[in-house]
Structures are given as structure tokens and as C-alpha cells.
Design a binder for these strands. Structure first.
Lengths: 248, 248
DNA sequence: CGCCACGTTGACAGAAATCAAGGTAGGTGG
DNA sequence: CCACCTACCTTGATTTCTGTCAACGTGGCG
């Protein structure tokens, strides 16, 4: 593992407050691996042997059933995923695949659990990370159940704009078909609804988005901190923030 | 607090593996309260000062936005809820109200966090409980995104049957309008779809459900351990099992 | 150049929400 | 004991939303 990577991981919320000896123990057991684009890292139902940390690239977490698939989250550096299954020593509820060439650190679940028991600073970080993951997916479920497609899209666009620094223009960080799946609709529906939204203060040109009338779009989206998440500058105790879609 | 209640709480997965001194400390800070039916215990957005443990009655966790509401879970004894917000010291993402007269133990979040730091056995339990909550809502989101209304209803009925001991007949544990909301549809839609399902091996009479053709219903529901959850006898390390709908 | 994946568009079908009446059961009070 | 009230549930008619299927466009890349 490159020293630079170690430093970066060490600064992750999850590993920031642990003893150096604990960190060293974890990292000694861990290893880094590079993966090409489109590779299935984790299959649904597999046993959770490793906590994954992405330090380069992008990973999609998705679920499937009866031949259907849906995107549950997209994780970008530096973020962790599959923490819950690792902790519980349980089968993965979601699969994971790379969306780009990616480099990923894999920490054996057994070491994770051992260090958790010994280092209460780490234990606090794990439980906070996990609570954050839980809250993220609660928000996701709330959005799905309480908002229409149009409202979900509008909220997403406003949220991305905010993350980009409250600018009017930004680039969609993921492909539209994946966004559609994440938002719980078909690509066709997303495409059409984006067009409809042009009457509500947003201009879409390929991956480029320009918010032309923020007030109007906000009226449609009715953003809510208890669904859309806190201000992006709320790094709080320093969470593994969700730069694209959500944390795992 | 009655000794019986203390014993019952002590046997909860969350409190089973902690030191007696830690348990005593927590329980000394905690108090029990009785609530009438229909009382709002927690409001969305409020600050999370207490972990709640329900020892009698039933509590609905729900979310609201723009005048709409949706049921996220129903918790029955003996279960905990609102753990994530307590741990994170964050605002509640969901509201809670009693569905029946209920008795609830409230443990101050600050004590919870203090004991968490000192008692690694408790820390393990907390993180496992939380991971369980996370996994439960991931399943919920998967069901919403991957299954149609009809499939969700069929799965729910099969699941309830299994929890009741794989019997053909059982009683719906919650009102239909709440079930509809939990399953992400309107009461009208639930009502109609239940009727349609009578052609698929299930008979509904009020709250009474009789599965007349399990194979047929199973073919519709296509139950999946990664959505519907493990066998009910998988109390595993003894989780706060989800007797009705889901754990918080 | 031509393939291929992604996105868009159109026509249509199906699912679900909405609006509006009824019906039913359980509880209350006369 | 019965009438009535109130929630809950059901049913029907209708609209809206969303998915499906099919065709076409387009941009990147071999």
C-alpha cells in the first residue's frame, strides 16, 4: 500500500480516532487491489469477509431480484461500504460493481471485529459510521415513499447543485440510467421528466445541468433536511461524506 | 420499574452481553412511562435525547413530508427504536406514535454513549443491533424498488404466515391502512390487490388470513431471504426480532 | 467507417392514485 | 337492547403516472 493511501485512510472518519497500534494492525491485515471497470466485486448473498474502502474510482451498490436490478448507492473515494454485513458476519444484501477503474482496500472482517472490541475509539467511529449509513438509507426510503418521480428528480438536482457549492451549473456525476435506477424509475421516465422540468427552472444538456430558476425548482422539490441530508459543509465529526449519491 | 421489566430488558440482545454494573448504571438513569393510544412520542426533526424500549403495546414509526405520511415500521415488545439517532446525537428522521396503550423505557442518550465507550460487550451489542436495523431497512427499500404492489403484499402474507409458525391461517397484526402505508401504497390499492390475490391461493376475511394454496402464493411472491429476512427461528445471537413489520 | 452503448422519443398498456359513495363492525349512550 | 356514531374498509369510476416496447439518434472508440 502506498504511504499516501495509508495517510488518506487514516484521515477517514472511520479510522481517525483509533490508536495507532490498532490502525497498524488493521492495515497490516488489509490489502489494496486494483479493478477494471464493470467488475463485480461483491455478489448479493455472498459471505462478508472484508470491509471495502474505495480510494480511487467509483463503485455501484445494487440489488437484484427476479431478474430486475436497482441501484442502491454509488460510493466514491474515500468511502467505505459493506460495513454492516462485515460487522454482523452476515451475507451481503447488495452487490457491488465498479463503474470505473478502481482501487480498493480490503480489510478482513475478523480483524475489524477484533479491533472493534479492543479500541473503544474505533468502536465509537464504527457505530457512528453505521448510524450514518442507516440514516442515509432511511432518507432514501422516505424519498421513495413520500415523493413523486418529479419531486425526487428536482430534489436530486438541487442537492447536487448544493454539493457543487450552490452553483447554478454542474455536471451529473453518474450516468442517467444509473441515476434513474437510484431514484426508482426507468431511464425513459427520467428522460421525459427531465424534459418536463425544463418548465420549472432547470436546463439539461447531456450531462450538463443548469439551474435557471432556483426558486421555481425549489418550489417543486421542496427540499427537506430530513430527507435530502444536511448541508454538505456539515462534515460534523468528519463523516465519510456522500459525494455522489449516498453512503453505503 | 418493575423487576420483571428489568429482567426482560436484561435479556434483550442489546443488553444481554454487558456487565451488570453497566446495566445497572443505564437502568438507574432510565425511566418507564405509560402512554395512551395514539400519542405522538417523537416528532420528526426533534433532538434524540433518549433511546426508547417498548415493553408493552405497539409503536408506529412514520415519516412525513409535504403533508403526506408513510409508515416506516411498527415496533412491538420487546424492541428498541431510535437507536441510530441516539448514538449520533442527531435529529430524528422519523416520528413515533403509539398504536395502542404502551409502556416504554427511556434511556438517556448521553448515558448510552458513556456506557458504550466503557463496556466493549455493550459496544458489540449496539453495533450489531444497529447493523440489524440497517439491514432491515435495506430489505425494505429493496422490496419497494424491486417488487410490484402485488408481489409485496404476497411476500408480506407469506412472511407473516412463517412467523406465525408456517401455519395456513393467521390474523393480520396491524390495521390494513397502516399495512398499506408500510408497503408503499394506498389503502384502496391494498384492498383491491388483496381481492385479486384470492385467485392466487389466499383468502382474506377482515383481519383473518388463510393461505389456501401456498405453492401458488409463493410463485407470486417469490420470497427471497435477502429481502424478506431470515427464518424467524434465526434468533441468532438473539436479535430484537421483528415480530410485526420490521425493527427500527 | 461502423459498431455499440447510452439516451431520447413516441405510442401504448398497465399500475396506482384520486375522488366519491357505500358498507360494516365495534363502541357508546339513550 | 337498540340506535347511532365513528373509524375503517371496500367498491366503483376516472385520471394520472409509470412501465413497456419499439424505433431512432448520437457520440465515443476500435
Amino acid at each position: 500500500m502506498r504511504p499516501h493511501d495509508l495517510t488518506e485512510i487514516r484521515h477517514l472518519a472511520l479510522f481517525r480516532d483509533m490508536r495507532q497500534s490498532s490502525f497498524d494492525a488493521l492495515m497490516q491485515a488489509a490489502y489494496v487491489q486494483g479493478f477494471p471497470q464493470g467488475l463485480e466485486l461483491i455478489r448479493q448473498g455472498d459471505h462478508a469477509d472484508f470491509l471495502h474502502i474505495i480510494i480511487d474510482g467509483a463503485v455501484e451498490l445494487y440489488a437484484s431480484w427476479a431478474g430486475r436490478e436497482t441501484t442502491m448507492a454509488v460510493v466514491r473515494p474515500v468511502g467505505t461500504f459493506i460495513l454492516a454485513a462485515s460487522i454482523r458476519d452476515a451475507p451481503y444484501l447488495m452487490a457491488a460493481r465498479t463503474l470505473e477503474r478502481s482501487r480498493i482496500v480490503m480489510v478482513p472482517s475478523s480483524d475489524l471485529r477484533a479491533v472493534f472490541r479492543e479500541d473503544s475509539g474505533f468502536a465509537v467511529s464504527v457505530v457512528e459510521e453505521l448510524a450514518g449509513c442507516y440514516r442515509t438509507i432511511v432518507r432514501h426510503a422516505k424519498g421513495l415513499k413520500l415523493r413523486s418521480s418529479r419531486e425526487r428528480i428536482a430534489s436530486y438536482l438541487l442537492r447536487q447543485s448544493m454539493i457543487a457549492g450552490n452553483v447554478a451549473g454542474f455536471i451529473l456525476p453518474i450516468e442517467k440510467r444509473i441515476l434513474a435506477s437510484y431514484l426508482g424509475m426507468t431511464p425513459e421516465n427520467l428522460s421525459r421528466t427531465l424534459k418536463v422540468l425544463e418548465a420549472d427552472g432547470v436546463k439539461i444538456d447531456g450531462q450538463r445541468v443548469i439551474i435557471t430558476d432556483r426558486a421555481r425548482l425549489t418550489a417543486v422539490a421542496r427540499p427537506d433536511a430530513l430527507i435530502d441530508g444536511p448541508e454538505p459543509d456539515d462534515t460534523g465529526r468528519g463523516s465519510t461524506l456522500p459525494p455522489v449519491i449516498a453512503r453505503s
